[in-house]
Simulated scan of single mutants.
Amino acid sequence: MQKKSPLFRSRSLAAITIALASVTFAGCTTTMPDRDASASSSRNEINAGADATLSKLYQTAPASRDLVARAKGVLIFPAVLQAGFVVGAEYGKGVLRVGNRTEAYYSTTAGSIGFQAGAQSKAIVVLFMTQDSLDKFRHSEGYTVGADATVALANIGANGNIDSNTVQQPIIGFVTTNGGLIAGVSLQGAKISKINL
């Protein structure tokens, strides 16, 4: 059996390395469009859900339309899923709109303790009524409600009007389900983080 020269071995190794690199890069190029399509689909789904959430909010509390129009920024989580039994968890994806244009996408997570059998979904809308509150949110590295800022949950009267004290707060929140606005809930401890989609 003839012994291979060091030059032959190094050329063979180089050829194998190039072949592996080609396969690796080919794999990258074939998976990238799928990933882009998936991200695009996710963005479209979030934005469609955000539009539907705002429409439902306007129907439930007509006075909210004026607040949304005056807000410096609107953060909308169309579907925040809450699941658990004794220890629960919440997760959802949403969009921040500034000047009626999509600026960035975010996720929200929260934990809770107490009896909560099953799973349920809710929508959350957060209005940044001042430029300062919006800027603090945008420049934060992980934003926690209660620690970084307080969100005043809107109190809606029987006539659909929003409590006058709530309207004057720098950050106003609405929480809705299929049954309408939820009263007496808290967003305390919810962590909101920017995500890349």
Results as ranks from 00 to 15, higher is better:
residue 114 G to L: 08
residue 14 A to M: 06
residue 27 G to S: 05
residue 27 G to V: 01
residue 171 I to K: 00
residue 101 R to W: 07
residue 170 P to R: 00
residue 3 K to H: 12
residue 164 S to Q: 14
residue 123 A to P: 13
residue 9 R to Y: 03
residue 45 E to Y: 14
residue 81 L to S: 06
residue 164 S to T: 06
residue 132 D to C: 12
residue 43 R to V: 07
residue 169 Q to R: 10
residue 140 S to D: 13
residue 17 T to L: 08
residue 6 P to W: 04
residue 190 A to I: 01
residue 122 K to M: 05
residue 174 F to K: 03
residue 73 G to R: 04
residue 37 A to Q: 10
residue 26 A to Y: 14
residue 109 T to P: 01
residue 56 K to C: 04
residue 168 Q to F: 00
residue 186 S to A: 13
residue 183 A to I: 15
residue 87 V to I: 04
residue 175 V to N: 03
residue 180 G to N: 10
residue 171 I to S: 02
residue 190 A to E: 12
residue 90 E to T: 10
residue 125 V to W: 14
residue 100 N to A: 14
residue 31 T to Q: 14
residue 161 N to H: 08
residue 150 T to R: 12
residue 143 Y to H: 06
residue 89 A to Q: 15
residue 41 S to T: 13
residue 137 F to R: 15
residue 131 Q to M: 01
residue 111 G to T: 15
residue 170 P to D: 03
residue 196 N to K: 10
residue 171 I to D: 01
residue 40 S to C: 02
residue 135 D to G: 01
residue 40 S to G: 09
residue 131 Q to C: 00
residue 66 D to Y: 04
residue 66 D to T: 11
residue 38 S to A: 09
residue 8 F to T: 14
residue 44 N to D: 15
residue 79 A to D: 14
residue 137 F to E: 09
residue 180 G to M: 05
residue 32 M to E: 09
residue 152 A to W: 02
residue 182 I to N: 14
residue 157 G to R: 04
residue 82 Q to G: 06
residue 84 G to I: 01
residue 49 G to A: 13
residue 159 N to P: 00
residue 65 R to A: 12
residue 42 S to L: 12
residue 62 P to S: 03
residue 191 K to T: 11
residue 195 I to S: 04
residue 106 Y to G: 05
residue 165 N to T: 11
residue 100 N to Q: 15
residue 159 N to F: 00
residue 68 V to L: 09
residue 103 E to W: 03
residue 68 V to M: 05
residue 54 L to M: 13
residue 165 N to C: 00
residue 92 G to C: 02
residue 143 Y to F: 04
residue 169 Q to I: 00
residue 128 F to Q: 07
residue 49 G to Q: 05
residue 24 T to Q: 06
residue 125 V to M: 03
residue 53 T to K: 04
residue 6 P to K: 08
residue 54 L to W: 08
residue 76 I to H: 12
residue 39 A to H: 13
residue 113 I to E: 07
residue 46 I to F: 13
residue 118 G to M: 09
residue 50 A to P: 11
residue 62 P to R: 12
residue 42 S to Y: 06
residue 169 Q to T: 02
residue 62 P to M: 00
residue 3 K to M: 09
residue 125 V to E: 11
residue 156 I to A: 10
residue 108 T to E: 08
residue 108 T to C: 08
residue 66 D to Q: 10
residue 121 S to F: 02
residue 197 L to V: 15
residue 71 A to T: 03
residue 102 T to C: 07
residue 141 E to Q: 14
residue 144 T to K: 10
residue 104 A to R: 07
residue 33 P to L: 01
residue 151 V to T: 01
residue 38 S to H: 13
residue 31 T to A: 13
residue 192 I to Q: 02
residue 103 E to G: 03
residue 17 T to P: 05
residue 112 S to C: 01
residue 75 L to S: 01
residue 180 G to D: 06
residue 197 L to A: 09
residue 1 M to K: 12
residue 181 L to S: 07
